[in-house]
């Protein structure tokens, strides 16, 4: 039952991404890519094997809708794979009991730090796949930084709103 619900949420998230967030633009060329948040919040509950498969399906579905040929699939699988290491980097704190801390069990500052680096890495993978190479490196970093800041702002608002409740 939970699986069905999670899959529905993922499909909804991709649809929102493709038909709403991709139409939003900021400074003429920045898009928020919020669908990745699903990887951190939902996929974390599944075994590693299925995390990767579902991340691929998530990105691939968006690729088909956007016609962007594989870049989202690649980036989503990458961030799903890198997630535990990132979490390790931001470190478990005293309250954590799990091996891989879930978002809810991380303290707020660690959680935000984790989310920002995760978004940054995902966007970096996405944009370098999109331009297929690292030429124009400064431009690439700039676009990655601003875009992830933009995505992060949305997530920050959501996190703060959640924290207040």
């Amino acid at each position: 039952m939970r699986l069905v619900r999670d899959i529905l949420i993922m499909i909804l998230m991709v649809l929102i991404q493709a038909y709403f967030f991709d139409e939003l633009l900021f400074f003429r060329y920045l898009n928020p890519y919020l669908y990745v948040y699903v990887v951190f919040s939902i996929l974390i509950r599944y075994p590693r094997f299925w995390q990767l498969i579902m991340a691929f399906a998530l990105g691939g579905f968006l690729d088909i809708l956007e016609g962007s040929s594989g870049i989202h699939a690649g980036a989503a699988v990458f961030i799903a794979f890198a997630q535990p290491m990132l979490k390790g980097f931001w470190g478990p704190n005293r309250e954590d009991t799990d091996d891989v801390p879930s978002l809810a069990s991380m303290s707020m500052d660690r959680r935000l730090g984790f989310l920002f680096t995760a978004f940054f890495l995902h966007h970096f993978a996405l944009f370098s796949l999109e331009q297929f190479g690292f030429g124009n490196f400064v431009d690439l970093l700039k676009q990655t930084f601003y875009s992830s800041l933009f995505s992060f702002t949305f997530v920050l608002l959501y996190q703060l709103w959640n924290a207040r409740r």
Partner: peptide, 23 residues
């Protein structure tokens, strides 16, 4: 290392997808 292998396989598929269509 099956997770690593799966990761590499999926990235391979994605990369092939990118290369075959994009440029």
């Amino acid at each position: 290392s099956r997770i690593l292998i799966l990761f590499l396989a999926l990235e391979g598929i994605a990369l092939y997808w990118v290369v075959s269509v994009q440029s």
